Amino acid sequence: MAALSAQEGASEPPPRPRLPGKSDGYISKLRELVKHEAEKNKSQWKTMGPAKVAVPTPNDFLQKRSKEPKLAPKKKEEDGKKLIPLSVPPRTYHPITRIKKNFINKNAVAVITGEPKKPRHFCVDTRQGDKYLLEPSGLFPKYIKKKNYGVLPKYVTRRNEEMKREEEEYQASVLEQLKMKAMKALSEEERTNVLKALKKKWEEINHAYQGLPIITDTMYKKMHKEELETKLNQLEHDIAAIEKHKTVYIANV
């Protein structure tokens, strides 16, 4: 007995002591319900088919035209009132009277009163009598008979007017610029005053020129003499031009 108890003790070790404060974990209250629903919805016949199949009855067979859509039955009574057949026509009834038409007389009147067909223009180009119409061939001058033949289109007339207006605006702008840059004519009084000022300036420069030393032995003296001679020549040219011309123009710069 001691040996058996020793073997039982060796095969089944004693349970471990549970640590204080540690639980088995959260267990949901709906655990059994979820297992039941999973087993219920599980398809056990996924590949082999259902375990039990309902056998069709002999009376439930497919009949001819059973799958075609059927119309609703006609209502014999409308709004609970029976339709009374009318034996007497109403006063608003007008019977259809068929009039026999004489198409021979009608066609004869149409031919007599109608206008005759105009002959079509054609051309015969072979001795066998082969002919072709002139109108679709382009040889018949039908375009020159149009009302607008030879009349300029509206877009061309409009374009010409725009070009003419642009040309007038350009000429007006050019004249305005020429007027702004036009030369101003000096009056007689202004011309006399300018001439007097030039002669006075010439006298001053000539007086300075006369006071130069006779001997120009340095570069500065030579350059000063040449400068005074250039100014005197320019003044003499301007004085001669103003005295020669009675009307003098000055540009507006």
Rank of each mutant, 00 (worst) to 15 (best):
K146I: 02
D130I: 02
E135M: 09
Y149S: 08
L133H: 07
Q128N: 11
P141Q: 10
M163T: 07
G150T: 00
F140I: 01
E135R: 13
K145R: 14
M163L: 15
Y132R: 12
G138D: 01
V156P: 00
R158V: 10
M163N: 09
E162T: 10
Y132S: 10
Y149A: 12
V156R: 14
L133A: 09
L152W: 05
S137L: 03
E162F: 04
G150R: 02
P141T: 02
N148T: 12
Y149H: 14
R165F: 11
I144D: 09
P136F: 04
R158D: 15
N160H: 11
V124K: 03
Y132A: 13
K146L: 11
Q128G: 03
K146S: 10
V156G: 00
L139G: 07
D125T: 12
G138M: 01
L133R: 06
K142W: 15
G129S: 01
Y132Q: 10
R165I: 13
L134D: 10
P141R: 02
D130M: 04
K154R: 13
I144S: 13
L133E: 08
E135H: 09
E161H: 08
S137R: 09
Q128S: 14
E135K: 12
R158Y: 04
Y149T: 00
F140P: 00
Q128K: 12
P153E: 11
N160S: 05
F140L: 11
N148W: 10
F140S: 03
V124D: 03
L133F: 14
R165W: 07
K131G: 13
R158S: 14
E166S: 11
Q128V: 07
L133I: 03
N148F: 08
Y143P: 01
G150H: 02
E161D: 07
T126D: 11
R127Y: 06
F140T: 00
R127L: 11
P136H: 04
L139W: 03
L152Q: 10
P141D: 08
N148K: 09
L139C: 03
K154C: 01
G129A: 00
V156D: 05
K146Y: 04
R165Q: 15
K147Y: 07
L133Y: 15
Y132T: 08
S137M: 12
F140K: 07
K164A: 14
K146P: 00
T126L: 02
T157C: 03
G150K: 01
N148R: 10
K145W: 01
R159M: 09
R127C: 06
I144N: 11
P141G: 05
D125Q: 06
E135F: 09
D130C: 06
R158I: 03
L139R: 07
K145L: 15
V151P: 00
Y143T: 15
K147T: 04
L134V: 02
R158P: 08
K146Q: 12
K164Y: 08
Y155P: 00
Y155E: 15
P141E: 11
K164N: 06
R127M: 11
E162S: 08
E161V: 08
R158M: 08
L134N: 01
K131N: 13
K146E: 04
D130A: 14
L139I: 03
K164T: 07
K164S: 09
